[in-house]
């Protein structure tokens, strides 16, 4: 199972990588939506942990482009962002996100969300 961690913060990517690797995923990183999109064109990951606000291409723009791709419905997408209001959550879910994490997060939250959408055993 492969997880793509998309966040413009190297620190967040490092923390997230450790958590998803502990959950048994092989991890790739992308620093913005454009890089994530290019990675997905190469090979669709099983899971994507996705920040919202990033330079070049935002998380929500990436998600909309991803879902329009052939095979772009396959990855389970979990937003992971400081945006914590209902309007953002609704917009993300409408665009095809599978789950939504409001930062700050810890391993319990990622584990709980991943298991809810069937990425890992509960």
């Amino acid at each position: 199972m492969k997880c793509l961690v998309v966040d413009d913060s190297r620190v967040v990517r490092k923390v997230a990588r450790r958590i998803v690797e502990d959950l048994g995923f092989a991890c790739d990183e992308a620093e913005d939506g454009q890089k994530a999109y290019e990675a997905c064109l190469q090979a669709m990951p099983d899971a994507i942990l996705l920040d919202w606000n990033m330079p070049v291409m935002s998380g929500i723009d990436f998600l909309e482009k991803l879902r329009a791709l052939p095979g772009g419905q396959t990855p389970k997408v979990v937003f992971c962002t400081t945006e914590n209001d209902m309007a953002h959550i609704q917009r993300a879910m409408t665009a095809g996100a599978n789950e939504y994490i409001m930062k700050p997060f810890d391993s319990d939250i990622i584990k709980s969300k991943f298991s809810q959408i069937g990425l890992i055993e509960g």
Binding site: N84, I89, M93, E99, Y100, I101, M102, I109, S112, K113
Partner: peptide
């Protein structure tokens, strides 16, 4: 925010 993220699916939160 922490409490509503442990165990609660986002659809139920909404």
């Amino acid at each position: 925010q922490f409490e509503v993220q442990r165990g609660l699916p986002i659809t139920m939160l909404m």
